[in-house]
């Protein structure tokens, strides 16, 4: 998956390490959003026809299409459920976070 990754960010350890003014490297993500999730989307790739509705509509951009099938970046999926609701094939189901499923 080529989604942006969480980095271990080296925070300043002294005053002289502080960046000039309040500016900082763009595109730095230091923590996941997974903890927000109550419901978790599960994609059934056998039902998916790659219409990419979910891919384009995801407010967090967590659906990856690069491999030709869809994958979800669960680090950043907040479980909003838009993908599941919008999927015309009903290929994405929302399951309770933490529950076992096959």
């Amino acid at each position: 998956m080529s989604k942006p990754q969480i980095v271990k960010y080296k925070m300043p350890e002294s005053q002289k390490d502080m960046p000039l003014g309040p500016s900082s490297e763009a595109g730095v993500i230091i923590e996941p959003n997974a903890g927000w999730r109550v419901m978790k989307p599960i994609i059934d790739n056998s039902k998916c026809v790659m219409c990419l509705k979910c891919w384009i509509l995801c407010p967090d951009g967590v659906i990856d299409r690069e491999k030709g099938t869809l994958e979800i970046d669960y680090n950043f999926c907040k479980g909003c459920g838009i993908c599941s609701y919008e999927c015309p094939q009903k290929a994405i189901t929302m399951v309770k976070e933490g529950k076992q499923y096959d």
Binding site: S2, P4, I6, G27, R37, D60, F76, I82
Partner: peptide, 13 residues
């Protein structure tokens, strides 16, 4: 496929 906005803290949905 690049995401220029990612991992943000907006509410779900």
């Amino acid at each position: 496929d690049k995401e220029y906005l990612y991992g943000h803290k907006a509410c779900p949905g």
